[in-house]
């Protein structure tokens, strides 16, 4: 298995994890003013903290999943990409619908 294929697999899993973390942190922050203040305390703005967090989670996840001694099967990268696409779509919809619900 080529290293670049494992890197692509690691990136798809790490990007999926990043989307999930951002969705959870965003919704949790809106439902809990205490948690939103906690996020704000790091950078002065909750969104800046989430921005930094998204990069940290993605790059840390990329390194961890790449370095894990796991053999990648012939369909794993494709499945990882499809999972990422579905999670990114679901995450976008979840955030949009949450804010619609929150507004109403």
């Amino acid at each position: 298995m080529k290293k670049i294929v494992k890197l692509a697999y690691s990136s798809s899993i790490s990007a999926t994890l990043t989307v999930i973390v951002i969705v959870v942190v965003t919704i949790w922050g809106e439902l809990s003013p205490v948690f939103k203040s906690f996020l704000k305390s790091f950078t002065g703005h909750h969104w800046l903290t989430k921005s930094v967090l998204s990069l940290l989670v993605y790059f840390a996840g990329l390194a961890v999943f790449y370095l894990l001694p796991k053999n990648i099967g012939p369909h794993a990268v494709r499945r990882g990409l499809i999972f990422l696409i579905l999670v990114a779509l679901a995450g976008s919809l979840a955030i949009f619908l949450f804010f619609v619900w929150h507004y109403l």
Partner: peptide, 8 residues
């Protein structure tokens, strides 16, 4: 918030 998905 959705923008944060783009770079990964």
């Amino acid at each position: 918030h959705i923008f944060l998905f783009i770079i990964p």
